[in-house]
């Protein structure tokens, strides 16, 4: 088996995460889609680390995880706030940017 199979899996997962972001309305599910995309990149990083024989890729994946954790905290807090204000977790209800 080639290691590029891992990359293919990462690509598919990334695309599925992106489609989730586009298709789902529930903010929490959308957020999960974002997490899925981040995880897919992490898989790619780890695979590249293995291809090149250098753990720096794993370090980068580690940073991605940490930043993702921070992002989740803030993002979920925002979702909670919006839910409190609007009684809805749908991203389509937050459309005040509309002209």
């Amino acid at each position: 088996m080639e290691l590029t199979n891992y990359l293919g899996l990462a690509a598919v997962l990334f695309a599925v995460g992106a489609a989730t972001v586009l298709l789902r309305r529930n903010a929490i599910v959308v957020f999960m889609g974002v997490e899925l995309m981040l995880n897919a990149t992490n898989l790619a990083f780890v695979t590249f680390a293995r291809i090149h024989g250098d753990v720096t890729g794993q370090v980068l994946a580690f940073f991605v995880m940490v930043v993702a954790a921070a992002e989740v905290v803030v993002g979920l807090a925002i979702i909670v706030m919006i839910f409190r204000a609007r009684r809805s977790a749908s991203v389509d209800d937050v459309n005040l940017l509309q002209s």
């Binding site: 695309a15 992106a18 586009l22």
Partner: peptide, 18 residues
Amino acid sequence: LGVLLGLGLAAVLLGVIS
């Protein structure tokens, strides 16, 4: 649009990888 973009993205990425 979402389906198209998702499939397109997958296609592009897979194409690049291959």
